[in-house]
Design a protein around this nucleic acid. Sequence first.
DNA 1: ATTGCCTATGCAACTCGTTGCATAGCAGGA
DNA 2: TCCTGCTATGCAACGAGTTGCATAGGCAAT
Lengths: 184, 184
Amino acid sequence: MALEHAILVSLLEQPGSGYELARRFDRSIGRFWTATHQQIYRVLRRMEADGWVAAEEVAQDGRPDKKVYSAAEAGRAALAGWLRKPVEPETVRHELAVKIRAAAFDDPAALISEVERHREGHAALLARYLHGEQRDFPDLDALDARQELQHVVLRGGMEYERMTLAWLDDVLATLRRLAADRPS
Amino acid sequence: MALEHAILVSLLEQPGSGYELARRFDRSIGRFWTATHQQIYRVLRRMEADGWVAAEEVAQDGRPDKKVYSAAEAGRAALAGWLRKPVEPETVRHELAVKIRAAAFDDPAALISEVERHREGHAALLARYLHGEQRDFPDLDALDARQELQHVVLRGGMEYERMTLAWLDDVLATLRRLAADRPS
DNA sequence: ATTGCCTATGCAACTCGTTGCATAGCAGGA
DNA sequence: TCCTGCTATGCAACGAGTTGCATAGGCAAT
């Protein structure tokens, strides 16, 4: 259960309501840990019961009330404990790789447009990363510890997208070669 | 539900029992789609009921009987349909990235050994890929369509590991710099 | 006026995936 | 001899994650 820890990190960086957390998970944090608002609300209630976070009801004008959560001392301690515990390697689910192997039993050309679609998505994500870097890290020589760590994660995301784009080009070249060799 | 499709691909490449499939998922296929034997047995029963696979009981000598499955025509058709349907981008779960951002609220030095452990795991996996490539693709200039597609997926895995190793070196350098700057 | 979207939280039902355990015969080593 | 491990399948219970729906007021556009 790492969702708790992802929420704790997000709340330590900035307190917020369940709704706000859900939107953060749709944007920055969600690049490496996805969650829906349902999960977030449920886990927040459990974390509040466990004393990991503190909630404060905030009445608003012309909007529903919200509960603003912030990380409590027990939560910070739990996070520190988790940091020191080894984590298993991620379980991978790479559907496109399955499709590529499946193409051997069907028409390879049928996959080309799907791979192109994925390529566009990754290119757009890389562009978003680069844009976000310019906005959030205008001076890369003057970062504090927190920003240094955020930026090294961002660099990982950018390198992943670059590598993926190059690989998808490789896949496309392979599919086109196979389609030319044996036109079905 | 893509487990069905991963199983179909594996059975098209080579028929086998649930147990054999589980071992394949631990080795080759499992690099991009993980599954336990429990999932595989359950899904195989459902696929047999749907007519996607055909099963044949095989009595063995000195071993329990096994049910050898092979892909049926309906399964192949379902796979072809799936190939042509767009697939959503994968939901990412990158626990190490969460930990790195969490280190900002704790001691960055506490993460170093964990990152080194991950680095070793990725280096070992890359070595296994390279070894498998030598074994399964001795002559890269004489591949049929199926092998071409298997190899392009393997290239993706290798590139991913190389990129990850470089990134983890970057992470380690960053953590060590932060640990030296503010020794706690 | 109505429609649709945004904020904000939540219930209920479902599927997916994991974990622990059970059976059962055979092989190999201490 | 006992213990461990491999082949081969499966049940039962649980936890994680998804989907559909509900509420409820305000805002903006058609």
